[in-house]
Every structure is written in C-alpha cells, then in structure tokens.
C-alpha cells in the first residue's frame, strides 16, 4: 500500500491532491516509528488506537479502510484499491480541472 500511495503523491500536484491518514497505532511512539519506517510524507491524524474517536465515528472495523473525497468534500468512493484507486483519483482530478477551466472562461 505505501509504495502505491507514495507514487500517487508524487504523480499528482500537491495543490490538487492530498493523502490524509488516520493512524490507529496503540501508542504515539509506534505511530511516529511507522511514519518514519515507511517514509510517509503526508499528514496523519493520530487516533490513539483501533477504538479511537475518529475510527469509532467513521465506523471503521478493518484496516486499511479508505475513502476518496472530491474537491467539494463529498465522499465519492469507498475502499477502492490498486488500479481502481488510480482511476478514481484521476476521474476526480479531471472533474476539478474541468470546473476550474469553466470558471476561468466565464
């Protein structure tokens, strides 16, 4: 998962795409080590364990669980992986760019 995520961050411009992690390690030290070890460059909430407040509210019972959210903050995909994840992100970026072009020409 990590190499794929790193490639997504490298591929897409930082002002259009971001990964936001919610880490459920049982200690903050373990969370810091995991970020360092896997060379993660993106931002992460720390949730304090698998039954932390964010995971509980988002009803997460399995890890990883992923959501893809569009530029308006709307949930558009749940738990897509691999090539499907690439395609999902590209579709939403295309929407975002089409909208920006639209506003630019108005």
């Amino acid at each position: 998962m990590y190499p794929h995520e790193r490639s997504l961050v490298e591929k897409h411009p930082a002002d259009q795409f971001a990964i936001v992690g919610v880490n459920s390690e049982s200690t903050i030290e373990a969370a810091r080590d995991a970020v360092k070890k896997n060379n993660l460059t993106w931002k992460n909430f720390y949730d304090g364990g698998t039954s932390g407040p964010i995971s509980t509210r988002w009803n997460v019972n399995g890890w990883p669980t992923t959501y893809v959210i569009d530029s308006s903050g709307v949930i558009r995909y749940k738990d897509v992986r691999g090539d499907d994840l690439d395609a999902a992100i590209e579709a939403l970026l295309a929407e975002l760019n089409a909208r920006e072009d639209d506003e630019g020409t108005r």
Partner: peptide, 15 residues
C-alpha cells in the same frame, strides 16, 4: 481544510 483538493482518506495501522 483540504477542501479544493481531491483527498484519499486512509485509516491505517502498521501491524
């Protein structure tokens, strides 16, 4: 705060 960007929200743990 990430509005305006496409976001991959990832619940994860390194276990």
């Amino acid at each position: 705060a990430f509005r305006g960007k496409v976001v991959l929200l990832d619940f994860w743990g390194d276990w």
